[in-house]
Amino acid sequence: MNSYLITYDLDKPGKDYESLIKKIKDYPAWAHICDSSWCVRSSNSSKDICNTLSPYLDDNDKLFVGKLTGEAAWHGLSEELTKWLNDNL
């Protein structure tokens, strides 16, 4: 299983993030890193994850999914997020 970064911009005013967030939380392991950024663990590819999440977006929304290599740095994240990242990257 690999770790992936998911980040998005939902451009429609009043957009309901809940259905997208619920779908992200369906992955076996996930962490909400920043407002619109998540890390997930999956055996699927970046393209597969993007295709899975795309139905929850409007045409003017943006989505990025990238496979993480294991090297990362961060500042200001909670101990819980730091532990998750250390355990899953």
Score class of each variant (00 low, 15 high):
His32Ala: 04
Trp74Arg: 15
Tyr4Leu: 11
Lys23Ser: 10
Leu10Arg: 15
Trp30Arg: 03
Ser19Ile: 03
Cys34Lys: 11
Phe64Gln: 03
Leu10Phe: 05
Asp48Lys: 03
Pro13Tyr: 07
Ser19Arg: 12
Glu80Asn: 06
Ala29His: 11
Thr52Pro: 00
Ala29Ile: 03
Asp87Cys: 11
Tyr56Trp: 07
Tyr4Ser: 10
Ser19Asp: 08
Leu53Met: 08
Glu80Pro: 00
Cys39Ser: 03
Ile21Asn: 09
Ser78Met: 09
Gly14Ala: 07
Val40Arg: 14
Asp16Val: 09
Lys23Trp: 03
Val65Gly: 03
Leu57Glu: 11
Asn88Met: 06
Phe64Val: 14
Lys83Gly: 05
Ser45Ala: 05
Thr82Phe: 00
Cys34Ile: 08
Asn44Leu: 14
Lys23Arg: 14
Thr82Asp: 15
Asp59Asn: 14
Glu79Gln: 08
Lys62Thr: 10
Ile24Ser: 01
His75Gly: 06
Asn2Lys: 13
Ala73Leu: 07
Asn51His: 14
Ser54Cys: 07
Pro55Ser: 13
Leu81Pro: 01
Gly66Leu: 11
Ser54Ala: 12
Thr52His: 10
Gly70Lys: 07
His75Tyr: 15
Asp87Leu: 10
Lys12Asp: 07
Ile33Trp: 06
Ala73Ile: 05
Tyr27Arg: 04
Asn60Gln: 11
Ala73Trp: 11
Met1Lys: 09
Ser3Gly: 12
Asp48Asn: 12
Lys23Leu: 10
Trp74Ile: 05
Ala29Asp: 10
Glu71Tyr: 03
Leu20Ile: 02
Ile6Tyr: 10
Ser45Asn: 12
Ile21Lys: 12
Cys39Ile: 13
Gly14Ile: 00
Asp11Thr: 08
Leu53Asp: 00
Ser43Thr: 14
Thr82Gln: 05
Cys39Gly: 05
Asp61Met: 02
Asn51Ala: 13
Pro55Gly: 13
Leu68Thr: 03
Glu18Ser: 12
Asp11Val: 05
Lys25His: 15
Lys22Asn: 11
Val65Cys: 03
Tyr27Ile: 02
Trp84Pro: 01
Leu20Ala: 07
Cys34Leu: 14
Leu53Ala: 09
Leu77Arg: 11
Cys34Phe: 15
Leu63Asn: 09
Asn44Tyr: 08
Thr82Arg: 01
Ser42Cys: 08
Leu20Gly: 00
Thr82Gly: 15
Lys83Asn: 09
Ser42Trp: 02
Ser19Trp: 12
His32Asp: 04
Asn88Val: 05
Thr82Ala: 12
Thr7Ile: 04
Glu80Tyr: 04
Tyr4Ile: 04
Val40Ala: 03
Cys39Pro: 00
